[in-house]
Write a protein that binds this DNA or RNA. Structure first.
Lengths: 197, 197
DNA sequence: CGGCATCTTGAGCCCTGTCAATATGTGTGG
DNA sequence: CCACACATATTGACAGGGCTCAAGATGCCG
């Protein structure tokens, strides 16, 4: 991803996390950039009343935790067994050059997601989510979601019940198939795309 | 903002735009970074069915249009009479160094906004919006919104009717006062903050 | 002062959240 | 390999917040 950081990152050891383990949390001192090696990561924020919004999911190769400020404003947790490499942002100011593409990518994803949660209905959001997951796992038609329904809901700004109902609707329309609790089979890729228009 | 770009930008001429005029639009060739000199800018995307989501508002000093890809994915329009300076991103690759803080700032704003449109009710969104506008105009208690209701609605993922009703609710609670169509007087700053928790 | 855009208010409905019960799946220990 | 227990997911009934459609009010500019 970042050409300049390539060597510096590759030489770092992998930190391993178990399911649900915190990688960093809000209020902590920042100063590291992280890259997922295996597994998955959720980055989220919580409102005072307990409502949670997942800002992004990160999978193998994705960078996260990129920020200038000294304190973290969000939390990052492992989803399942997860490996992460990290580099310090303070030591070498030039490190940012290599990370810029990653920052822009994260920024673009955030904007993309604004559109989904701002202007789409429940089924449309779920459809968009399935497409995103499919695309990020190499456009595969069969995939295992790495996160539970709660995470999907908090990512899409919905409740787990609505997510579940939306999935059922898509299943009844023969657009997808549900394989167990986490498995998804996409039967009509185009139909999903049409829902996101 | 960007120390390295300071000189290069200052020497650029100001391009002027009238209300509603397009600065760039989706599909166009990118390659410029823009900075608002006076006036305001809305950056938005439109879904195929016509639904619009405003991703961000930009005011004096704010950078926008920052992206790596060759094509724009969003539209930028002037709100009122607006002046903009721009620098080319291709000529000098080092230009990005100075722009990095601006990118991170835009990224952070996008995340902040995800929380608002993902997990807050109508009144809460409007309250958050008023606070944002107040903060960005120097924490003033009296302000003139530079954009019409439809822009506020498309920014917050609501309809103009709901925005209007939410403002009325805040007025009835003596938290704000409405001064004409665009004027806002904040009576209870803390009350607004409490709504956004 | 008149005309038009913008904003507000009202009535009704639908989508999604809430609360509650049931079902499914997973992992552990016998 | 099965039984049990717990976590996770689905389904149902109901209520409420926000959207839609429609009318009226306000403000702005010529």
């Amino acid at each position: 991803m970042g050409p300049l950081t390539q060597g510096q990152v590759e030489s770092m050891p992998i930190s391993s996390f178990v399911n649900g383990q915190c990688i960093y949390s809000s209020g902590e001192r920042a100063g590291q950039a992280y890259r997922v090696e295996f597994g998955a990561v959720r980055v989220y924020r919580v409102l005072a009343n307990g409502r949670r919004q997942i800002l992004a999911f990160h999978f193998g190769g994705n960078w996260f935790g990129l920020q200038n400020e000294d304190l973290h404003r969000s939390n990052a947790e492992a989803i399942g067994v997860t490996g992460v490499k990290s580099v310090s942002l303070h030591e070498d100011p030039l490190i940012w050059q290599g990370l810029l593409p990653a920052v822009l990518e994260n920024f673009l994803s955030a904007q993309e997601h604004q559109l989904v949660i701002g202007r789409q209905s429940a089924v449309e959001r779920v459809a968009a989510f399935l497409l995103e997951m499919s695309d990020r796992s190499g456009h595969s038609y069969r995939l295992e979601l790495s996160m539970p329904r709660v995470d999907v809901a908090d990512y899409l700004g919905l409740t787990i019940e609505t997510v579940s109902r939306s999935l059922t609707k898509l299943k009844n329309k023969r657009i997808i198939n549900l394989l167990g609790a986490r498995g998804i089979e996409i039967l009509e890729y185009r139909a999903l795309q049409n829902l996101c228009l």
